[in-house]
């Protein structure tokens, strides 16, 4: 017994070292990604408020580029507005036009803007923390975009913060298509460069060229159709049937300040709201 104690004492630093390393390994293995991220900023008041504070400071520094983005977006919206206006004018004089009664199947998307409190782009599985949570109506599974294109999907929500799983995460699976074609596949991140992602297993019968745009596809209720994801930079022939495409992402994940969260509202939700409004 005494020699055992002497042995332990002799190597006590080594044992202490091993215990600490095992402890950190247990943390790595036991905590899944969501718990880790949750532990991070959303639920942790100290870290959360610190990040909030610093991002407020850095907001002032980046006002110039945010302004630029807003100007570009408003120009784009003006262009769209003009297009729609001319369409409405055309329809007004078209007496043969009948209002199609497909309100029930029409998708309604609502946008909410949130500030990015904290983001990572250099890990294998990256996450963004944004400053809107359940109290602002955010739920898991909602799509997130910014003025440049698709950002990711909300994967965890607390009272005032949410965690977004961006394209730059090995678990993120976002449906994508080559512009003007139907559904093609899911966009995956290659794991190291924040500027590029891969679109795998594209069937060869779909014509793809370098420079084509990749957009969100129509068969999900998360994103509206035709939101920009990126442009094709490289096409690789995997075998006789499939391509693998390198996509340059349109969103700059290293410098992301504001995002829009998309809520997909089903029609029955809306009619219920209207009925409530009438009975008031």
């Amino acid at each position: 017994m005494r020699s055992l104690i002497r042995f332990l004492l002799k190597f006590k630093t080594l044992f202490f070292f091993i215990i600490l390393e095992v402890l950190s390994l247990v943390m790595i293995v036991n905590c899944n990604q969501f718990q880790r991220v949750h532990f991070l900023s959303s639920s942790n008041i100290v870290v959360g408020s610190l990040y909030n504070f610093t991002s407020k400071i850095s907001d002032y520094v980046s006002l110039g580029s945010v302004n630029q983005a807003l100007v570009e977006e408003s120009a784009e919206l003006k262009r769209q507005n003009a297009n729609l206006r001319s369409q409405i004018d055309r329809l007004r004089y078209d007496s043969t036009y009948t209002v199609r009664n497909d309100f029930a199947t029409e998708k309604h998307f609502m946008f909410r803007t949130a500030r990015v409190v904290h983001s990572f782009a250099n890990l294998k599985d990256n996450y963004l923390t944004i400053d809107k949570g359940t109290s602002d109506g955010i739920r898991t599974g909602m799509g997130v975009v910014n003025e440049k294109g698709v950002v990711g999907i909300v994967c965890d929500v607390s009272g005032h913060f949410s965690i977004v799983m961006p394209i730059l995460n090995s678990r993120a699976k976002i449906n994508a298509k080559v512009a003007s074609k139907s559904n093609v596949g899911t966009i995956m991140w290659n794991g190291h460069d924040a500027r590029y992602a891969k679109l795998k297993e594209v069937p060869q019968y779909i014509p793809v060229e370098i420079g084509d745009t990749i957009k969100s596809s129509s068969n999900s209720a998360v994103f509206p159709e035709d939101i920009m994801i990126g442009t094709v930079t490289h096409i690789e022939r995997l075998n006789n049937d499939f391509y693998s495409i390198d996509v340059k992402l349109s969103v700059d994940f290293r410098n992301i300040k504001y995002v829009d969260i998309i809520e997909f509202r089903l029609d029955d939700e809306m009619t219920e709201l209207e009925r409530k409004e009438e009975t008031k």
Binding site: S24, I28, C31, R36, L40, N44, V47
Partner: peptide
């Protein structure tokens, strides 16, 4: 550091070593 980065355990392991 791990608490800030959300990479629970990774920084700890490396720094302890």
């Amino acid at each position: 550091l791990d608490v800030f980065c959300g990479s629970l355990g990774c920084h700890t392991f490396a720094t302890t070593l």
